[in-house]
Design a binder for these strands. Sequence first.
DNA 1: CAATCCCGTCACAATCGCGTCACACCCTTG
DNA 2: CAAGGGTGTGACGCGATTGTGACGGGATTG
Lengths: 224, 224
Amino acid sequence: MDVVNIFLTSELGESLDDFVHDQRRFTFDRLGPDGPRRLVEGPMWAFVDWVMPELAGLEMCRRLRADARTVDAHVTMVLEEDDPEDRRRALRAGADDYVIGPLTRTAVLDRVLALQSRGVERQATRRFELGALTIDMAALQARWNEQPILLRPNEFRLLRFLAENPNRVLTREDLINGLGKREPPIDERTVDVWIGRLRRAIKAAGGGNPLRTVRSLGYVFDLG
Amino acid sequence: MDVVNIFLTSELGESLDDFVHDQRRFTFDRLGPDGPRRLVEGPMWAFVDWVMPELAGLEMCRRLRADARTVDAHVTMVLEEDDPEDRRRALRAGADDYVIGPLTRTAVLDRVLALQSRGVERQATRRFELGALTIDMAALQARWNEQPILLRPNEFRLLRFLAENPNRVLTREDLINGLGKREPPIDERTVDVWIGRLRRAIKAAGGGNPLRTVRSLGYVFDLG
DNA sequence: CAATCCCGTCACAATCGCGTCACACCCTTG
DNA sequence: CAAGGGTGTGACGCGATTGTGACGGGATTG
């Protein structure tokens, strides 16, 4: 059975106990300033309150992104009201997403289920190789046969996501979701430009072209 | 209670008996060159040794993928040492995953539990083989003896449909319907062109001609 | 506050996919 | 061997899809 690990920075009015639903086991846990209390395997979802007792939500967000145990978590920021300025700050601090509070059980499940529905998930792998390509999550660096590939942040995330799902056609929508770009909505054609830039960067490092276009569908990272 | 069926190609040093843990029943069984000894319901996990007494692990892997009873199994390859080249070969032969041996009870459970929680599920027949031909639905790619066949989307669908109905004469109408071309109506002669293009692509990949013309009827995908 | 970087969008050119046609070739039948 | 239907395939052209240079706004740096 799949396990979905959900972490929250605050107690909620309604009880959010562990439960099983639709073939998945949902576990809930408190998330403190020092990170998660327990280590888990599998996808992690963190909901961070804008205002926290001991720490500003934005700072918490940054910590999650810097902490090796939680870099792969999908971070949702919980805003008190819909302030465009706050939304932007949240995303810049590393959040993948946000909801307008207060946080309810329904809101949590909506988020998790919606993003899981495509079944494209991050794997918590620190460093991995695919053919000549090496991706080092800790150093945020990619190499082609030891030769560093000069990537901008967005390109790195794109390459990472593609490489995490090799030999599998990813639609432009998958890629947009995979990079956690919900807000503002991204034009699908923009993905073409991302791919173009990524290809150029790989080629500049002496690499081949592992990114295959599947016309009218999307792109694949080709192994072999 | 959920059942997790685990198949191994070799005896292990430590005993791996059936047992119950965490709401799941784990059953273990030997996996021989002819496939599983018993049919099971529910998820199957196969651990295939790189070196087997009677059959190379890679060949075993391909057989599992070609066998209707086991196409949906999650196949983990057991490597003796961490050779990137071997890993690639394993994945290309259809393995979903690999571990560096020797295989222990802990390694098996780690794998199964980790992947179950990560929600890595095999979609029905994502990949199948017929003789030298391999069709990978996820990557939308076909190979002839490991050599990729360069197919355009329509040709891929055609090949897939033919390969799904081997040894059976398909009329031009069958093929048009099989590819879901209702609108606009397709001229039956167009199918001839499709077949011609598909044959050329297979030959370009060093393949033979598995597509036989049945005069005044249609075409067959010939097995053997 | 100037210089630089990153990234989303646009517009246009290049490319691709594919249905159709036309004609040569093949096989069958008488 | 002549006749006639069936099949293979090169060529063509229309649409749709994709690649990419250019631009501008916002963020970051110094």
